[in-house]
């Protein structure tokens, strides 16, 4: 990882809360005094397409919002197939990955026109390619925290716990609190975030 530039990709499926997650992570980075550029694919991405946020932290010079192929340092995956897809395209031998193993089936799979590869094979391939890979059952943990939709915050928690970015938890807390003025929502999201921290620690200790 070049110290003056960190390339992080958050990926998943439209509707999983990619943008919010990337906003929190980027917000934490800004608080740390880093320059940030985020590139996001959405528009109609609420509607089931693949979604990626490229998040770039730099100290030296401003960078564009997109990460070149093969240059992602970190990948946070909300869905296994998307994680593999992004890792293949943007990963390299030093890329670290944390991902949610719960599959979300594309409609071409539901309609029988294509096949979702065997989950175990996907897991093995991610493990094989990534320098480090950690599985966090984010959907389950989010359910326990109060709402399965908060899996994005669980994953942000997992990323925070990994310390791969070297951002303090406090920075994340601030970023979350700033985004949610409604105390109920803030608490739910903080609960999910904390569940992610625990989830990561448990998974990493295994």
């Amino acid at each position: 990882m070049t110290p003056d530039l960190i390339n992080l990709i958050v990926c998943g499926v439209g509707g999983q809360g990619n943008i919010l997650a990337s906003q929190i992570v980027a917000g934490a980075g800004i608080k740390k005094g880093l320059r940030v550029a985020i590139g996001e694919t959405y528009g109609a991405s609420q509607r089931g397409g693949s979604v990626m946020s490229h998040i770039r932290f730099s100290t030296a010079f401003p960078v564009g919002p997109l990460i070149p192929k093969g240059e992602a340092d970190l990948i946070v995956g909300f869905e296994p197939l998307e994680t593999l897809r992004v890792l293949l395209e943007y990963g390299n031998d030093t890329t670290k990955v944390v991902f949610n193993p719960r599959p979300n089936y594309p409609i071409s799979v539901l309609s029988g026109d294509s096949k979702y590869p065997d989950l175990e094979l996907i897991f093995t391939q991610i493990k094989n390619l990534a320098a480090v890979s950690v599985v966090v059952e984010a959907t389950e943990l989010a359910k326990q925290a109060g709402n399965h939709l908060a899996q994005n915050l669980v994953m942000v928690g997992a990323l925070a716990a990994s310390n791969w970015l070297d951002f303090s938890l406090e920075l994340f807390h601030q970023a979350i609190s700033e985004l949610f003025s409604d105390p109920e929502k803030r608490d739910l999201n903080l609960r999910a975030f904390n569940a992610g921290i625990k989830g990561f620690q448990q998974a990493a200790n295994k």
């Binding site: 499926v13 439209g14 509707g15 109609a44 609420q46 509607r47 089931g48 397409g49 693949s50 093969g70 197939l81 593999l84 897809r85 293949l88 990963g91 390299n92 031998d93 594309p106 409609i107 071409s108 799979v109 294509s114 096949k115 979702y116 590869p117 094979l121 391939q125 094989n128 390619l129």
Partner: peptide, 28 residues
């Protein structure tokens, strides 16, 4: 540009065999 490693090239081939399904847009 730096080359992709052997490992990634092989995995890319493997994935091509799996034909990773794309995600067409769909009504929610």
């Amino acid at each position: 540009r730096p080359e992709r490693s052997e490992k990634f090239l092989a995995a890319g081939k493997q994935a091509a065999e799996w034909k990773l399904p794309g995600r067409e847009w769909a009504f929610c």
